[in-house]
């Protein structure tokens, strides 16, 4: 298993957001996470990417217990996250955002060196092209459309070849054809061995690309199942019933 978590809990003040979450995802696998607003999906991904420290429980990355205390720790370990609110610096361009915190420099002397603007711009254009977009790499992100901004956030996560990619509603602002591009991309990443956790409200998309789906209700995974061998309709019904706290009426 590339990632395995056991009994993760997390509270903010008096609010218990995660109440003992366990799950796992293997390389070349996509784990779909669904749940109502406020169920704790974003919080779970933020715990996995080191933004929040869990109150208890264990995170194992490639069979070793890890304890990230800074975001960069998780990134160095090969975990990238696409945040629900994208977390972009709107006054900077796509290139600056994609390389934020990991700027490339030419001819460094010790810790000093000048930014390699051309090199970073070229790589930005390449990664954006691989996402099927030719949005300008050197224009302020503020001036881009919602879908383009989302693609910048996706590009940032891809540029550094993650082992585990956490995607928090990455398609929310995308047009239908760009959603298609993103789903294809997830397939390609899986083929390259990347593990993915995908949070999405589009159940059909989720079922299309994910191998396993977990349903999070009030900070607990109440149901988890393999996608293979079931019809989309069946699974959608199952998800919806689980999210409303219903039993499965002995159907499965």
């Amino acid at each position: 298993m590339i990632l395995e978590i056991n009994d993760i809990t997390k509270s903010f003040g008096a609010v218990d957001v995660l109440k003992g979450v366990s799950m796992s995802v293997d390389s070349a696998q996509c784990y779909g996470l669904v749940g109502d607003n406020g169920a704790g999906k974003s919080t779970l991904l933020k715990v996995l990417s080191g933004v929040h420290h869990p109150d208890s429980g264990e995170i194992r990355l490639e069979d070793r217990v890890v304890d990230f205390n800074a975001e960069i720790g998780a990134r160095l370990a090969g975990i990238e996250m696409i945040f629900q609110d994208l977390a972009l610096c709107d006054d900077l361009d796509a290139t600056a955002n994609i390389f934020m915190g990991r700027e490339q420099r030419k001819s460094t002397v010790g810790r000093f060196g000048f930014l390699d603007h051309e090199g970073m711009k070229k790589q930005t254009e390449e990664v954006l092209a691989s996402l099927g977009t030719d949005l300008p790499a050197d224009q302020r992100v503020r001036t881009l459309s919602g879908g383009q901004r989302q693609l910048v956030a996706v590009a940032r996560a891809l540029e550094f070849q993650p082992k585990l990619l956490l995607m928090d509603e990455p398609t929310a602002a995308l047009s239908v054809d760009k959603v298609g591009v993103l789903l294809e991309l997830i397939e390609r990443l899986k083929a390259r061995g990347v593990a993915i956790i995908l949070v999405s409200h589009r159940f059909t998309d989720l079922i299309q690309v994910c191998d396993k789906v977990g349903v999070l209700v009030h900070g607990k995974i109440v149901d988890e199942f393999e996608v293979a061998g079931h019809s989309v309709d069946n699974l959608t019904t199952r998800i919806v019933r689980r999210m409303s706290g219903l039993d499965l009426d002995g159907e499965e």
């Binding site: 933004v51 800074a70 975001e71 960069i72 990134r75 945040f83 977390a87 972009l88 610096c89 709107d90 006054d91 900077l92 955002n97 934020m100 915190g101 990991r102 940032r156």
Partner: peptide, 12 residues
């Protein structure tokens, strides 16, 4: 200045 939270999340 633009978004300190985003910069922090990116590891700055």
């Amino acid at each position: 200045g633009s978004n300190d939270r985003a910069a922090r999340l990116a590891g700055v």
